[in-house]
Amino acid sequence: MANVGRPKVPVELSKEERETLSRWARRAKSSQALATRSRIVLGSAEGLSNVEVGARCGVDSHTVAKWRRRFLERRLDGLVDEPRLGRPASVTTDQVEDVVVATLESTPKNATHWSRAKMAERSGLSKSTIGRIWKAFELKPHRAEGFKLSNDPVFVEKVYDVVGLYLNPPESAVVLSVDGKSQVQALARSQPAFPMLPGMPEKRIHDYVRHGTTTLFAALNTADGSVISSLHRKHRAAEFRKFLAKIDTEVPEGLEVHLICDNYQTHKTPVVKTWLQNHPRFHLHFTPTYSSWLNQVERFFGFVTEDLLRRSDHRSVQALEADIRKWVKAWNENPTPFIWTKTAEQILESIGRLLNRTSGAGH
């Protein structure tokens, strides 16, 4: 027998509400949260079930039920996360939309981005209200993150090659993500740190004395997370060849060795090529240019930096290298592999969306 539940109150829209919701749903640069809520209400107004609306909008049925109920209770105002503090809203939906659109699609005069003060002056709202609107729509005009698109002519082929090794590694083989972290400095602080106290973080002086540098070569086993490492004072082809030799001694015979490397010239010198010709079980796979995010060993270096190097205090390179060896040994006692989930197709689709959003892309 079909499920029998409490009949839903139909969603009926006025002409003005439908026009507003359609405009919100179409605005590509506005908050995706508001656009999704608008599409939920429009789908509900078509008489679709919560499950059908959820499938269309990419959300679950509980989310559909929530925003359907909010709309029936407060109409358009119910779709906006504007805090009301127990009193009638003093900011209209149109004002919120104006702030969001202006933040995303314009810049203030004589400035590169909006501040709360500048937006408050433009909109006539208070700075605290602007802050609440930006928080509700997860807008952060003061922040910017850098990126650099690869100009590698065989970018697509390299992405498929590297990601294929992560998701479908070859049989009777080990896949190693390899790189060198150069210029690791032995830094000695000029004064001792003030220890952390309740309500007060640790304090470190900015002045320090340099005592030399070292390079950490690392080969991360993508299957189990274990690391083969080596420390050298220089980062040349000779040192990289020595590291390859160490890998050769530590990987059991009979296994093919697939190395994922970046395009650093050290990895392509005649010395390295000759060594590889003499060791045919080794196979190099290069990531595209400007694509270090594709090399898993970079995440390992991130842990080394955060756990050890960022607050290090070493009076000699020897002391620094001893601590690095100790840290890597502890890592290998309980290694953790990085689970890769994105397929090559998903990565290329994400980059395609970025290109579409980038001004002047493709021209």
Results as ranks from 00 to 15, higher is better:
Met1Ser: 14
Ser31Gly: 14
Arg37Ile: 00
Gly47His: 03
Asn50Gln: 13
Asn50Ile: 00
Val53Gly: 01
His62Gln: 14
Ala65Gly: 13
Lys66Asp: 00
Leu79Pro: 01
Val80Ser: 04
Thr92Asn: 02
Ala102Lys: 12
Thr103Met: 10
Leu104Cys: 15
Pro108Thr: 10
Lys109Met: 10
Asn110Trp: 07
Ala120Thr: 04
Ser123Trp: 06
Lys127Ala: 11
Ser128Val: 14
Lys140Pro: 00
Pro141Arg: 08
Arg143Lys: 15
Asp152Tyr: 06
Leu165Ala: 06
Leu176Ser: 07
Ser182Asp: 15
Val184Glu: 04
Ser190Glu: 14
Leu197Ala: 15
Tyr208Phe: 15
Thr222Trp: 00
Asp224Pro: 08
His232Val: 01
His232Arg: 12
Arg233Thr: 09
His235Thr: 08
Arg236Ala: 05
Phe243Thr: 03
Val251Lys: 12
Leu255Gln: 14
Tyr264Trp: 14
Tyr264His: 14
Gln265Trp: 01
Lys273His: 11
His279Gly: 11
Pro280Leu: 11
Pro280Ile: 07
Phe282Ser: 05
His283Trp: 07
Leu284Ser: 02
Thr287Cys: 12
Gly302Thr: 11
Arg311His: 13
Ala322Leu: 09
Ile324His: 01
Arg325Leu: 10
Glu333Asn: 13
Glu333Asp: 14
Pro337His: 04
Ser359Val: 13
